[in-house]
Amino acid sequence: MTIGGDDYDERERAGTSLAPGGRQTRTRLPDGGAYAAGRRARVGTRPSKGMVTVVGVVVLLIAAIAFANRGGGGDSSDAGSSGRGPQSQPTAPTGEKPVPGSDGGIASGFPKTEQGAQSAAANYAVALGGDGMFRADTRRQIVSAVYAPDVAAARQDDLDDVYSGKDFLKGIGLNANGNAPDGMTFVSRTNPVGTKLEQLKGDSARVSVWYSTLFGLAGEGSKNPVAESWYTNTFQMKWVGDDWKITDFQQKDGPTPVGRDQAASSAEDMADAVQGFGGFTYAR
Rank of each mutant, 00 (worst) to 15 (best):
T16D: 05
F277E: 04
F134N: 11
S102V: 12
L159P: 01
L29Q: 14
D75Q: 12
V146K: 03
A34N: 12
T232C: 10
M133I: 09
F134I: 10
G241I: 09
D7Y: 04
L61M: 15
K245G: 05
D9T: 00
T213P: 05
A154R: 12
F110P: 11
R40E: 09
S266E: 07
D182H: 08
E114V: 01
G276P: 08
P90F: 15
V126R: 07
I172T: 03
T113L: 10
R11V: 05
A117W: 01
T247R: 12
D160H: 00
P192R: 00
G95P: 13
V99Y: 11
M184H: 06
Q262S: 11
L169I: 02
I62A: 15
T45E: 14
Y211L: 00
R284K: 14
V54E: 10
E12Q: 01
P86G: 12
D157R: 10
V258K: 15
S88W: 09
A120M: 11
M51S: 15
R28K: 11
S164H: 02
R84M: 14
D182V: 07
G50F: 11
P30Q: 10
R46M: 13
F235E: 00
E12Y: 04
W239V: 02
L217H: 09
F168P: 05
A68K: 08
N233P: 01
D9M: 03
G278F: 14
S212T: 09
A92G: 13
K49G: 13
W230G: 06
A68H: 05
P257Y: 02
L197A: 05
D261R: 15
F168K: 06
R13S: 01
V58C: 13
E268N: 08
D103G: 04
L200N: 02
D9V: 00
A120Y: 09
V209S: 12
S77G: 15
D243M: 07
K97W: 13
R42N: 03
Q251W: 08
A152P: 00
G194C: 07
T25M: 03
S102M: 14
R23C: 00
M237R: 00
K201L: 00
F277R: 09
F134G: 06
E220Y: 01
E228Y: 03
Y35K: 09
